[in-house]
Design a protein around this nucleic acid. Structure first.
Lengths: 228, 228
DNA sequence: GAGACAATGTGCACGTGTTCACAAGGTGAC
DNA sequence: GTCACCTTGTGAACACGTGCACATTGTCTC
């Protein structure tokens, strides 16, 4: 019987599936044959009921009284995430962040090989990084076509990000991961995700402040800015 | 009158405040005196009603019929986020990612100066990166105390992440930003945020697959894995 | 083959987040 | 001073996400 392939999987669940996948991979390496929702929850840092509900969106792949078969569940999650094939990635911007991303083993090991590096600095074009020749931004279209690139990663300063996004879309890339701290607009049908490293720190800062306040600490940032 | 300093600000709002802050900063640089919720929404990539509701949690800082004063609103957001002071950061792990983060201008410019770099590789300890001497992991406690470090950033492989997290907590750091792809456990009172770069790509992969499916494309990853 | 046991799958209630629509309130022209 | 106009702030309805509690259904022992 074909799997139900859960018609619609909630966004919140989709965001957790990669975590389960990673944990299941570790369990598989350790030789575990099955895992209960409780153990999987513990290892993933979530609630057991949530794990069961999440997995139920993929189909009924558990065995009551036993748990989930690690191999089978892993396959189903990979399938749901579309990770049964590799998705070559192009990284635009070979600065510090671009290089770090290119070197990051986690991309390749999870099915996202870095197929190409692109930069608009003539001094960098033609040089190699981790065995990949850096191409010019003007060659983007050819790079995407020839290497069958599916995903573009933007790792340049904010000022040039929209232009690069436009070029990526024009070149045929339909998924973009943007590290530049700016809001991008892309046409319908193009999938965009945003990672802003400083935002994370700012959220931490908020919680730190709030925690202190709860404990009755004196607020060092008192109102002192006149209005007008 | 003292600002109400919104008793409780929803998490979803907190996550958007840094975006508003960034956009308002750009408006300020451009010399804008006021901004309407509609314009701010457009620039931030969100809905205007959401902007107004978000800002209302901070207090009533808008002027009906006019909009929000850029300077004043910016101050209030910074205040709410606890960004009226600097929060020195220590980066643990001076590999590619650690270096990229250390070089990232966005950290310092938004109030999170990189005060220290730490690594456990003896070959790196004592060398400099962007003018900061790399210290040994064993010196972490001193580094945190002497430089008044508030936030620890973990930029090492998953295998050592929990140990480093423990060391950071022990050293007195109460906020941790973890880039290692693993679930960390920290005591109550310690704030932890997780950024997994590969997870973002996997979410993109899901949406790509789902989009194709909607359009009636044939699923290349058909059921072919026998159960057992 | 029957019964004890174990863990899934899910109905339900609750909390959080989003969006609409509009009253309230401020501005500026005349 | 009055009036037309503009934009905020928010009540209310709806959508989404979470977690409990338990019936269901499978396994394993004897």
């Amino acid at each position: 019987m074909a799997p139900p392939s859960g018609r619609t999987i909630p966004d919140a669940t989709v965001a957790r599936l990669p975590i389960y996948q990673r944990v299941l991979g570790e369990l598989q390496d350790r030789g575990a044959a099955t895992v209960s929702s409780e153990d999987l929850a513990e290892l993933s840092g979530v609630n057991a009921a949530k794990v069961r509900k999440d997995l139920s969106f993929l189909g009924s792949y558990g065995i009551r009284g036993v748990g989930y078969e690690v191999d089978y569940l892993l396959f189903q999650i990979r399938n749901a995430l579309g990770l049964t094939q590799q998705w070559p990635v192009v990284i635009v911007g070979v600065g510090n962040l671009g290089r770090a991303l290119a070197d990051y083993a986690g991309f390749t090991s999870r099915g996202f090989p870095v197929a190409a590096l692109v930069d608009d600095d003539p001094a960098k074009v033609g040089t190699e990084h981790v065995g990949i020749v850096i191409r010019a931004l003007s060659e983007l279209r050819d790079v995407v076509r020839d290497l069958d690139v599916a995903i573009g990663v933007i790792a340049i300063p904010a000022s040039g990000a929209q232009r690069v996004a436009d070029l990526l879309v024009e070149a045929g890339v339909s998924s973009i991961l943007n590290f530049a701290p700016t809001v991008l607009s892309v046409p319908d049908g193009v999938n965009l995700r945003q990672v802003d490293l400083a935002v994370e720190l700012q959220i931490l800062s908020f919680h730190r402040r709030h925690r202190n306040r709860e404990r009755g600490a004196v607020d060092p940032a008192a109102e002192s800015n006149p209005r007008r």
